[in-house]
């Protein structure tokens, strides 16, 4: 298991447990996220504090999950390490996804009611 899910109010915190977010983990990520979204969840924080490397397949998975969210939903990144942040910046994906220094900041950004 490379992922953990934890509910914090209306927001689901998704944690990557491996230092590499690549093909295998991204398949699992996509599958599990689809299940959560189907069950009605729409606000997510993706905790990347453990991730030191992320390939383009994993980013593609994150983007496709964001696309599948309802218009009121969002997925926000938290605790992004420097190498991953560099990749997000140089491919301009940081302009599409909101990034926060840590999980608490990301949770707060959803507001008290999670919106």
């Amino acid at each position: 298991m490379n992922l953990s899910f934890e509910g914090q109010g209306d927001v689901v915190v998704v944690r990557l447990l491996s230092s590499r977010f690549e093909a295998e983990a991204s398949d699992e990520f996509r599958r599990r996220m689809t299940e959560y979204i189907a069950s009605g969840a729409s606000h997510f924080v993706l905790d990347l504090s453990a991730v030191k490397f992320m390939d383009s397949g994993a980013l593609g998975a994150v983007l496709s999950v964001v696309k599948s969210l309802p218009s009121t939903g969002d997925l926000r990144l938290a605790a992004v390490n420097d190498p991953v942040r560099t990749v997000l910046r140089l491919t301009r994906i940081d302009k599409v996804l909101s990034i926060f220094d840590d999980v608490d900041d990301a949770l707060r950004s959803f507001g008290p009611s999670g919106g």
Binding site: S56, G57, P83, T86, T91, R92, V96
Partner: peptide, 27 residues
């Protein structure tokens, strides 16, 4: 880290501005 290959997906950023994203690269 140097990205190469891949494709450009043209879309909008969080503020609705034009934002070409570079996807499917290799590093």
């Amino acid at each position: 880290m140097i990205p190469a290959y891949g494709r450009i997906v043209e879309g909008l950023d969080r503020h609705g501005r034009y934002n070409p994203m570079w996807l499917d690269w290799k590093v």
